[in-house]
Every structure is written in C-alpha cells, then in structure tokens.
Write a protein that binds this DNA or RNA. Structure first.
Lengths: 189, 189
DNA sequence: CGGTTAATGCAACTTAAGTTTCTTATTTTC
DNA sequence: GAAAATAAGAAACTTAAGTTGCATTAACCG
C-alpha cells in the first residue's frame, strides 16, 4: 500500500515503525529468515496492522527497494541513454557505495520478478525515452534490453558485495561497463 | 540429498513419486503456491519422508533444475567457448523448446541464488575450460562473466515464455546472441 | 532363512502465516 | 465539542512448515 497525502499521525507512526524494524532486522539476518511475527514484535504493532498495509513481507521489501531506487533515479534523471550508459552505471555504484548495510541487503535480497517489474520500469523512464534509437525498438525489444541491463548491473553489484567489496570501486565500474556496453566480445577485447 | 548408487527399491519409488508429484503440481500452479503438504498428499508419502530427502521445496526445485541442466550440458559439451557462444545460446533455446511445461515452470521459478550457484558452475565446466582467453581471467572475472551470460540468457528466455512464446524461435535466438555477444552497443548496431 | 539395518508411516507437537471478529482508541469533520 | 469514521489492538482460529519419538515394514546381508 502506498501512502499519498496521508496525514493521520497513527498511520505515519505505524509505517515508520514497520520500516525502522525492517531496516534493523535486515541488517541482522537474511531476508528470508525474517518473519512477520518478529517484525511486528520489533515494531510494537499487531499482526493485523502489518497486514493492513502490506500483503506480505515481499511487498514491504519491494516498497523499500522502490524508495531506494527513486533516490538513485533522481541522480541520473538528466543523463541521456544509451550514450551515457557508462555514466549511469557509474552512478549506480557510487550511489550504492554511499548507502548503508540495509541498502545492500535489500538490493541483494530481491527475487527475480521484483527486480524486473520494479527496476526495469524505473530505468526505462530515466533516460531512454529521449532516445530515437530506443523509440524505434518494439515493446518486446525494449523490455528485453531493460531486463538485460538491469540483470547485468545487479549481477555485478551482487558479486561485488558477496565478495566483501574487496575490489576497488573503479575496477567494478569498469568491468561492469565493459560487459553491459560490449557484451562478451567487449569483455575480451 | 543426492542419490548415488542407491538401489533400495523403496527409495527409488519414493523419489520417483516425489518428482512425479512435483512435475504435476508445477504444471498446475505457480511454484510459490505449492506446499509440502499437498506434494506429500499427491505423492502418497508422509511429510517425514519428504524431509528425509529434501531440506525444503527449494532444494527439490534446485535438484530438478540441475537434472534438466545436465541434459542440456550434454548437448553442448563439445562446443568451444567463447567462440561458439552463439551456438551454445542457440542450443539452449532449441533444447528448451523441446521440453514441456514443467521445464518452463521450473526454469522460470528459479530464485537468483539458485540460478547462479547452479548454472554458473555448470556452464563454467562446459566449454570455457579449454579457452586460454578464459584461463587468463581472475576468479572474480570468471564468475562475473558466467553470471552475466546466464542472467542475460535466462532473462531472454523468461521474457519469451512470459510473452507466450509468440516470437519465432530464430528471432529470440538472434536477439539473445546480439545482447550477450555485443552488449548494448551490439544491440543497436 | 533369520536378524539387522534403514526407510516409511503415524501422530503429536511447536511455531508462524494469514484471517476474522470484536473491541478500544484516535482522528477527522461538521 | 460531539458524532462519525477509521486505525489499531486483542484474541481466537485455520492451515502449513518443520520437528520429534515411536511403531512398522521392507530391504539387505550373512
């Protein structure tokens, strides 16, 4: 459920306590080990209240991802695609690096359908709409391309995180750009 | 749990009934709606027996994916990578097209970690090991590249399936090859 | 064939998901 | 400020996950 201009203090307080509890929990354990019950205990709310706002934990995860996603989109909104794809990728890693542990856990916990349904849509709007090249693609091709880019970048990000972020940021960005822009051929060049 | 040279007829019968029931169920409903209870009812076994062989449904899914994956690998084992990457991709789609509904559902139900932990390892062994180009990469780069390719191909396959497989097979293969081999640049060329 | 081992069933149990009904408290609106 | 609307809690309920102890049955092996 999305809060529009809801001013009811009870609602604001409840939603905030849910998100705060979720942020804490996801820093402490894997997403798939978090239960609704413990989230409610932590947030000091009744289970009924949680289910009033979210269908399941997956929906809460998706909403929090979407919020993080929109902050990132704000930063890249003036870039033009596909020309500035390298800059877009760079910004993704810079933005990620600025965020805390909760960001990592949330972004890396995404199941496949959430990745595509959410991020594909978002990135789509960002800079591609200005491109004639892009507009000439069929809907099928557009979706394929968006899914391709997002999967590639997320794959690179996730591996970097799982590896303990040992690789220098600049190197990760470079590797990612080579793959996304040039594919396997570009990678071996 | 993996069956090695187990000849016990009870075991064979149980495992077969579990997999048969799972095949049926996944054709009837989404993976995440299947419960252990209904699987056991269908397979005419006790819950205890199911948990004797599999930790969770996810593990059963992973094992069935692995079995499908190895049939595919058998077909591409003599191809050399990265030179024959287009042929490998083509074989993936041809193989998929030969399989039934259960294959589609199983392959498209994979959560992220299963995709990578399973398929990355498998494809890795297939044709890359013969390539000097590949051997010169760091472990990090190897893993990144494998994840990239698998995510790209699976993304293309999943979209094709979700779209009702309306697009001609040859066209899907062509689009996939362009993206995997040439990235975004190759796609727009 | 008979004894040992391992698979399976049965049943009860704990914990959590998700729902429902009813009640209490707070906010809004007039 | 009082009435109507709605958020939130309490508690009970159903269903399923996953576990455990014990009984039973079938396979294996000398």
């Amino acid at each position: 459920m999305i809060l529009k201009g809801n001013e009811d203090l009870r609602v604001v307080k409840t939603i905030e306590s849910i998100k705060k509890a979720f942020d804490e929990l996801i820093c402490e354990k894997d997403y798939d080990k978090i239960t609704v019950k413990e989230l409610c205990d932590r947030a000091r709310i009744n289970k009924k209240t949680f289910y009033h706002y979210y269908e399941t934990l997956d929906f809460l995860l998706a909403e929090m991802q979407a919020e993080l996603s929109s902050s990132y989109l704000e930063r890249i909104k003036d870039l033009k695609l596909p020309e500035d794809l390298d800059k877009v990728n760079r910004e993704f890693f810079l933005y990620s690096a600025e965020q805390g542990l909760a960001y990592e856990k949330i972004t890396c916990s995404q199941p496949y359908h959430v990745i595509r349904d959410d991020m594909v849509e978002n990135v789509n709007e960002a800079g591609w709409s200005k491109s004639a090249k892009y507009q000439n693609l069929s809907d099928y091709e557009k979706k394929l391309l968006m899914g391709f880019i997002n999967n590639a970048v997320l794959n690179a990000y996730r591996q970097w995180v799982e590896d303990g972020k040992k690789l220098p940021l600049e190197e990760v960005i470079h590797l990612t750009n080579r793959l996304v822009l040039g594919g396997v051929s570009g990678f071996f060049k």
